[in-house]
Design a protein around this nucleic acid. Structure first.
Lengths: 324, 324
DNA sequence: CTACTTTATGACAACCATTACACAGGATCT
DNA sequence: AGATCCTGTGTAATGGTTGTCATAAAGTAG
């Protein structure tokens, strides 16, 4: 491996001069500098990231921690992060699984964005205590080195519930996320508040998992119990899709007529559903971009306010009016 | 930051003894070792990855380079890689975009798995010349430091074509990937060979992009040209989905009756299509696992043979028999 | 022409961990 | 008892880069 030492030798200057030249310091004459640069090019020099990271105590890399690589939500989210990160001179890496956590405390990355319930808050707080910078997208955590960029879950769930209520639905199923999910709990809270505001609504909670399988399981229960048209609020779209498929395949019930279905997330997949799924939309791209921005500010030592991502309702034929 | 120096001071031993103890070397007495370990724990010591990488000239991290974070194929593929990597003591990071390429030559990662046409072969070969280890999944490259794990594209395309031909289809559209795509070219080659083996087949090539939009665009053309039932081979499922939706929404043509559609990849999404899409299947998980295995062997200095991933046909109601 | 800045460059320590080698002291052997 | 071998520990070099401080040369002022 060719190092600045080799360049220094060949150029007949000291290593510090090479370092200055390479980093574009104005301390070096243009002449010397361009000579050094030419030699570096000629020797095919590439700096060693480990050495630089060791010395500078920064790697210019941001890590994103996801539960798995399968989620439907992630595409735009990550693109949003990457765009901001790149324009600010950072690279983005995506990791998954407990093993990879080490990259944060071992200082391989300058900061972390967390979207993984399996990454325990206790662990995160420990790292924050060690002065590592973190942005969480899936929980609330109060620490000077941790920032949150959260979805406005409550507003979203409220919008969804009001949409169903306005259309006269009196019997509802709510399919939740996995126990302990922050998003699920927040959405559920708003659901209950919405239900408290009106009378005469019969409702049943079904425990889901935020995955298609949860929707399928819920569908089976709904089909088995079916008497009259019902409304279903799946706390995310992926379950809504699973539910929808299961209903279509294993019953003669029609979405939008006997089963009035609304989801949450507006994932790309819903664009290909028949009928169009009513859901709650928000800009994933913006969410990611904001998360990256906040993290970079944290890394820079700025104090930043927690941010919130606003949501809107997307109407769809999957929800019709209740007939009396 | 607490370093081994701090531990050494507190334990009253030298830094080398601490290092040996931390790395479980048998050179240190159990007594000394456990005393050191206790102090390390107490001081909340975490090793510095940069320092270790610098010295050991390895980071135990594998990088995967993808075109973007949106692809449907990636989930299982990455999971397969991660599993193998983790069991062999490596961490997996996923990167995208030209900026992140630097991680390979700068020795931040021990090797790279490439699934990104935008990562130029020329650049890869240059890195390989510098002794970096690479596994490519999307092209053929002959270099001692580069290994390939490729899909059996030809077999897949042949299976698909034979499936259509056996069912009596005489008029076909082939929707390709983007120009320059290795997978697309290989599949296309087999398509042409299959067509050469039979007479009387009228076929039209439509340039696609391996994304839904490509399928939608193709659908428009097919609808506009429509006279008699036709068969369509989309060179990947994502385009097939786009095509399918476009046809269903903007024409009265029925998939499996007037439009006989087959895809390639068997992505999870097709499970939710009506009718079930005929396609070509292969284990993404295995593909990823094999890629990671090969890369780790390369890093270890072993010479490895290129591998091939076998494919099978998945029948589906999206393809029916041609009626005379 | 001396004294004081300014400027370009060099020497060197530091970042943190690993590891080859040296060394001291005890155990083992003749 | 002297020679030899282990064994546990320390010393110091190493990896590549950055950046502080020192120094030499050139420039400016008095």
């Amino acid at each position: 491996m060719v190092s600045i030492k080799d360049i220094a030798k060949k150029a007949g200057v000291s290593i510090s001069t090479v370092s200055y030249a390479l980093n574009g310091s104005s301390k070096v004459t243009d002449e010397t500098s361009s000579r050094i640069l030419a030699i570096a090019q000629e020797l095919n020099y590439i700096p060693n990231a480990a050495a630089r990271t060791l010395k500078k105590r920064e790697s210019k890399i941001i890590g994103v921690f996801l539960t798995d690589f399968k989620g439907e939500v992630y595409g735009d989210l990550l693109d949003g992060m990457k765009e901001v990160a790149n324009t600010q001179g950072y690279d983005l890496i995506v990791c998954s699984g407990k093993q990879s956590h080490r990259m944060l405390p071992e200082r391989m990355i300058d900061g972390a964005i967390i979207l993984d319930q399996a990454f325990e808050s206790e662990e995160l707080l420990e790292y924050a205590d060690r002065n590592h910078k973190i942005v969480v997208l899936d929980r609330e955590l109060d620490h000077k080195n941790i920032n949150q960029v959260l979805l406005d879950n409550k507003a979203g769930a409220t919008l969804a519930m009001e949409y169903l209520i306005e259309r006269g639905h009196q019997k509802m199923y709510i399919v939740t996320g996995p126990p302990g999910s922050f998003d699920s709990m927040q959405r559920m809270k708003a659901v209950k508040q919405a239900l408290d505001r009106v009378d005469h609504i019969e409702w049943i909670e079904i425990e889901g998992d935020f995955k298609k399988s949860g929707g399928e399981k819920a569908a089976k229960q709904i089909i088995a119990d079916y008497k009259d048209p019902v409304a279903v609020f799946c706390l995310n779209d992926e379950m809504a899709i699973g539910l929808c498929n299961q209903i279509t395949e294993n019953s003669s019930l029609v979405i939008g007529e006997q089963i009035h279905l609304i989801g949450f997330d507006n994932i790309e997949l819903t664009r290909y559903m028949q009928p169009r799924l009513a859901t709650i939309d928000y800009s994933k791209r913006k969410w990611g971009a904001l998360a990256a921005e906040q993290l970079i500010k944290l890394i820079a030592g700025d104090t930043v306010e927690n941010e919130r991502i606003y949501v809107t309702l997307v109407e769809g034929e999957s929800v019709g009016y209740a007939v009396k």
